[in-house]
Amino acid sequence: MSEPFKNLINPARIREAGHHLARVWPAFDRRRFEKLALAQLDTLELKARAMQIADALEATLPEEFSQAADIIEAALGPAGEGDELGFATSDAGLAGWICWSLGEFVARQGHKHPKRAFAALHALTQRFSAEFAIRPLLLQHPELGYQTLEQWTRDPSAHVRRLASEGSRPRLPWGLQLKPLIADPTPSLPLLRALQDDASAYVRRSVANHLNDIGKDHPEHVADWLDAHLPDAGKERRALLRHASRSLIKQGHPRILAAWGLGAPFKGEAALTITPKRVRIGGEVVLTLSLTSRARNAQTLAIDYLVHYIKANGQSSPKVFKGWQLTLAPGETRVLTKKHSLRVITTRVYYPGVQRVEVQVNGKVVAEAEFVLQR
């Protein structure tokens, strides 16, 4: 059985933090810090653990923020190099998941000293990621924040450059939503222009996810971006833009599909079968899709499927899943299969009943079938 995710922050990490903070600031009350940080730790999930450690830091680090930030920076280990992601605390200093709590302390205590706070996050993000911690500061100090991020797009560290994009994502998972950017994403667009051809794949992946976030609220912005940046794109930029387009492709957005040569309706016949017809929660079904072209020319097809899951109130809610991408020759018949898991996961609750499945090709539904989900 795999280790619980929450144990990424554990008593050993807390004691390491106490050791390194006391190493650089002998007046640090390590015993009190560890007592507060370890209190009922086993009962807490990951984020709650990080927040409790931040509470302990607030209770034991100096009230003067600049001094506290100096101590935190002095306790850090060497900065990560390149796209390195294996951050971990060592004898040299702190790194890895404990830095989530250090960043949270900076976010809470640094709002009255934003320049010093941004400087501390510049250091922290090179040992973990400050993508959560920077977001309250961007809301409280947007002008200074975006000026700082613009400077960071030229930083030698890929981790800092990535933070310019990841920290300003409108809908970062687990992170505080940046509602002003959800309403109007234009302040972050210069950052993405500066970073979309970055030498680091780590940075480019963040840009793609940022654009995908924007597309959830402003699909036309992403369509305009493709019009401007796709025609002369090299291999790496094309890959970034394709990843940025993934949600809108699934939704069948006409301009996005057209930009990728996927706008033409499917010409042919499609049939979907599902086996078994009845399945218990925790099992799986097999989708079999048969496509026969009736076109005179080859067809480039983006194929996804929608499962209309039954909800608690008996209504259904569609969830889009990635299917296939292929080119179908004139007159060709292609049979495609995919297993679809109904394993219980934390982000979805299954309810028994008839579950409808639709297949869409280039954004248009071409076939459907049903299966019965049982307890």
Rank of each mutant, 00 (worst) to 15 (best):
M1A: 14
M1H: 14
N10V: 00
N10A: 15
A17K: 01
H20L: 09
W25Y: 15
P26I: 13
R31I: 10
D42P: 00
Q52S: 03
L61V: 00
L61I: 06
P62K: 06
E64K: 12
I72D: 09
I72Q: 03
E73L: 08
E73F: 12
G77V: 06
E84I: 07
F87K: 02
G93V: 04
G93Y: 08
I98T: 01
E104T: 08
Q109H: 14
G110H: 01
P114M: 12
L121S: 05
A130R: 07
E131M: 03
E131V: 05
F132L: 15
A133I: 14
L138Y: 08
H141L: 13
H141C: 13
Q147L: 08
Q147P: 04
T148V: 10
T148W: 03
Q151S: 15
W174L: 05
P180A: 01
D184G: 12
D184E: 13
L189E: 02
L195Y: 06
A201L: 10
S206P: 02
I214N: 04
G215T: 01
A223M: 07
D227Y: 01
H229V: 05
A233M: 13
A233K: 10
R238G: 09
H253F: 08
A258W: 02
L262I: 11
A270S: 13
V285T: 15
S290E: 15
L291I: 02
T292K: 13
T292Q: 11
N297I: 00
A298L: 10
Y305C: 06
L306R: 14
S317W: 11
V320H: 02
F321G: 08
W324V: 00
L326G: 14
P330C: 07
E332H: 15
K338M: 02
S341Q: 13
R343K: 15
R348C: 07
R348E: 13
V349C: 02
V349W: 03
G353F: 02
G353Y: 07
V357H: 11
V359G: 09
K364I: 15
E370I: 03
